[in-house]
Nucleic acid binder design. Sequence first.
DNA 1: ACTTTGACTGTAGCATAGGA
DNA 2: TCCTATGCTACAGTCAAAGT
Length: 354
Amino acid sequence: MLNNRISFVKADSEQVLDVIIAKSNFTLYKTKEVATGIDVHQDFLNKKGATKLSNQIPIGAGIFNLSNEEKDNLDLTEKETELIKPFYSTNQLTRYFGNSINDTWVIYTDSSFKNPLTIKPYPNIKRHLDRFSNVITSDNKPYGLHRARNEYFFKGEKIISLRKCPQRPTFTFTDFDCYVSQTFFIIKTNRINQKYLTALFNSELIAFWLRNKGKMQGKAYQVDKGPILEIPIYKPDNHLQLLFSNVVDCILFAKETNLEKDTKNFESVIDCMVFNLYVPDHMKKRKIDILQFVEKDIEEVMQGKEFETLTDTQKEQVITELHNRWSDPDSEIVKRMNSFSEKSPEILKPIIEG
DNA sequence: ACTTTGACTGTAGCATAGGA
DNA sequence: TCCTATGCTACAGTCAAAGT
C-alpha cells in the first residue's frame, strides 16, 4: 500500500473508468518520452540569500535566471549567448497555447560546469555567478545548474504539462525551444501526433480519469509523472489523429492572433470528439455520435486541405465558419452535444457532471 | 549520481473586524 | 460610513528526503 495512491471512487464512476481503461492502446516511455523541468535551485536572490550576501545585492536579482534587462546588462559575447536559453512560466504557457515571447532567461549550464575550468570561455557569465557563489547550493556548483536535464526535451515540438492545476489539467503544445522549471513536466514523442495528444490530455474525459485515478491536492490536480504515464491513451488511426490536429490548429491560431479570445467552443467539440473515440458504439446506438459531422464540416470548410497550409486570411475564415456551425443551436452537432447527459446517463453523464 | 515527490514556504487576493 | 489592519485561503513556487 505504501507507494500506491488511494482513491475513493463512486460505484457508477468505477464502471465508466473501466470502459476508458479498456480502450487504452498506447503507453508513453517512462524515461525517453516524459521528463521533469530544470531544477534551478537559485533562480533569483531571495531574502535569506540577500542577508547572506550582506545585503550588497537587492532581493530579486537574477542568479541562474535573468530578466531581459539583466541579460542585456551582462554584455555577453556571442559565445556566451549560446548558454542563455529562453525560460517560460505559467505567464506564457496556457491550456493548448504557449506564447513564444519570453521575459526570462536561464543560464543553461549542465553538470560539466562542476569543473571550474569549463566556465573559462564564458568570462562575463563567470563574473555574474561569482557574485552569488556563497548562496549557490547546486550539486554542480560553482557554475552548473542543480539539474539541467536532458536538453532534448526542451527543443522542438513537445507538450508541456503543468504539475499543479487549480482549475483543470493544463497541457500546452509548443513548437519553439522552451526551457521550463520543475513546475512542469515535458512530454515528447514521435510515435503519436502531439497535437492530438494535447487535445486528448486537455479533454474532459482525461480530466475525469485524473480526478479519480490520478492525484489530487484538495481540489487541485497534481499531475505528477506517475499519473501522466498511467493515463489510458487511445491512439486512433492517422486519419483521425489528423482530424483532431486540425481542430487544435484552429485553437492555436485563434489564441495566437487573439482572433477569438474564447476558444471554449472548439474545446468543447474536442471534449465530445474524445468521448466519441472512447465509446463509439455506445454513442452511435443512442444517435449522439458526432465525429462524422465534425469530419464533414472540416472537409467542407477546409476543402480537403491541411490547416497549416492555408494563408492567414483563409485560416481566419475557416475558424469563423467552424465557430458559426458549432455554436448554432440548430446544428446536429450542437443538438447532440447538448443531449449527452440525457441520452447517456450511465457513461457520459458521470463524466460531465462528476 | 540522478529523479521523484511530499511537505514546506511565500504571497496575492479576498473577507472580516475594528477604529476613526 | 469608510478606511486600515489583520486573518484566512488558495495557489504558486521551493527544497531536500526518499527512491531508483
